[in-house]
């Protein structure tokens, strides 16, 4: 039972992570893929933050009369990672917009078909 409570946070993280993973590999819609990446990303954040927690500790802001603080280092890493994450997400979304422009669809299986057609057409014109 103790093992269950002690490791429950990791299991939640893994469940979330696998959902994100599934979205990335199984969905054909590019926006859904990006959403899946976000889910995955947040699960990693939760993992880091849960590592930094100390039982009985408090937020790492120095105050008189408090001895135990949670570990500040993961907080710093994740803090910056969140902002970087949203910036890279924006980049991914911009790429999606360009793909929509070029292929008029954002389903990657359709894009693959279109691309194959393009290649065959090129080969046809060359030979």
């Amino acid at each position: 039972m103790e093992t269950f409570y002690g490791l429950f946070n990791y299991w939640i993280v893994i469940v979330l992570m696998m959902m994100g993973f599934y979205m990335v590999i199984a969905q054909h819609n590019l926006i859904k893929k990006i959403i899946g990446l976000n889910v995955f990303q947040v699960s990693v954040f939760v993992f880091y933050i849960s590592m930094s927690k100390i039982k009985g500790g408090t937020a790492p802001i120095l105050t008189d009369g408090i001895e135990i603080y949670s570990n500040p280092l993961p907080h710093v890493l994740i803090l910056t990672a969140i902002v970087v994450g949203v910036a890279t997400t924006a980049l991914g979304l911009a790429l999606t917009v360009r793909i929509k422009d070029a292929f008029d669809t954002i389903e990657d299986d359709e894009i693959a078909i279109l691309e194959k057609e393009d290649q065959e057409r090129e080969r046809g014109t060359i030979s």
Binding site: A59, I61, L79, T80, I82, V83
Partner: peptide, 11 residues
């Protein structure tokens, strides 16, 4: 002094 900083403020 409290929670906060450049990243949050910018956002």
């Amino acid at each position: 002094f409290g929670p906060g900083g450049g990243f949050q403020a910018g956002v």
